Amino acid sequence: MFSIIDIETTGNRYKFGKITEIAIYQHNGQRITGSYSTLINPEMDIPYFITELTGINNEMVKDAPKFYEVAKTIVEMTMGRTFVAHNVQFDYKFIREEFERLGYDFNRKTMCTVQLSRKLLPGHRSYSLGRLCTDLGITINGRHRAAGDALATVKLFEILLKKNEIIGHPQNRDNLKLF
């Protein structure tokens, strides 16, 4: 069981930044079984360059729930599941930091689709989500928005699952199953 996640933030530094949007797709290894997406009021100004990148501005988040108001849903949707993201450490560190500010120790097993892509899909010039999706013919509806990027990551994850089944097949004993 997996929770495939993408977030948008106020910057790149998790210790000082805040989450502005989150999307979670629960996946059972075959298909999506649940989803959640929301803007989050970061309780700080969103820098101009982030608004330019994501399209998320202060006006859009002013009436959005604050992180503490969605924290329970995030816990419930990820409990007992592997936390999957493209460049997982970015998303995971931001979410852990938000929970730490609330006094909650958020710990999940993680899986990175960048690392898996490098192992299972070698030879790409870039393993950024946008370039990898272009190479694989995955359409991203809403690039640099949590739901769009998370859904693209789901499609990539499904390709990786199929590739892993082939590599992990008993007839191909020289390769190790990665998950």
Rank of each mutant, 00 (worst) to 15 (best):
D6R: 05
L132C: 03
R131Q: 12
H124K: 15
R173M: 12
H86L: 04
T38M: 04
I140G: 01
K18N: 15
F99R: 11
S128F: 07
F49N: 06
G29Q: 11
R131V: 05
R143Q: 12
A152Y: 02
N107Y: 12
E165C: 08
M60D: 14
S37Y: 01
K72I: 06
M44W: 02
I138L: 11
Y127L: 06
R108N: 13
E97I: 06
N172R: 06
H27I: 06
K15L: 15
H27K: 07
D149P: 01
K66F: 06
G130W: 02
L136K: 14
E97D: 14
N41F: 04
S37F: 00
K119D: 12
N172V: 08
T78I: 01
G80D: 08
K155Y: 04
L121D: 10
E158V: 09
I40Y: 11
F157Y: 13
M77G: 01
P42C: 09
R118S: 00
F83N: 09
E43F: 00
G130M: 08
P47K: 07
D135L: 07
A147S: 14
I167N: 08
T9V: 00
E100F: 11
G142F: 03
S126Y: 02
Q115A: 14
D135H: 07
E100P: 00
R173V: 11
V154H: 07
E52C: 11
K15F: 10
T134C: 06
I46F: 08
F67V: 13
Q26V: 08
G148F: 09
I22R: 01
I166Y: 12
D63E: 15
C112L: 11
L121G: 05
M60V: 05
F83D: 09
T73E: 15
E100S: 13
Y36K: 10
K62H: 09
Y48M: 11
G148V: 13
I138K: 09
M111D: 04
L121C: 03
S35K: 13
T10N: 08
R131T: 07
A146M: 03
V84C: 07
F90R: 10
F49E: 11
I140A: 05
S37G: 08
T110H: 10
K162R: 15
L120F: 06
I32V: 15
R118P: 00
D63K: 13
N41Y: 06
G34V: 01
V75I: 15
N175S: 14
G148I: 07
N57E: 02
K62E: 10
I74C: 04
K162Q: 15
Y36N: 10
R173C: 02
P122V: 12
F179I: 12
D174A: 14
T33W: 08
F94Y: 13
E158F: 05
M1D: 13
L120I: 09
H124C: 10
A146D: 04
I50Q: 00
Q30A: 05
E59G: 00
I24E: 03
H169T: 05
I95T: 11
G168F: 08
V75P: 00
E100I: 04
R101P: 03
T38N: 03
Y14L: 13
F94S: 12
N107C: 09
F157R: 01
I138Y: 07
F67L: 13
K62F: 02
M77P: 06
E43D: 15
A23P: 00
I24Y: 08
T134S: 13
S126F: 02
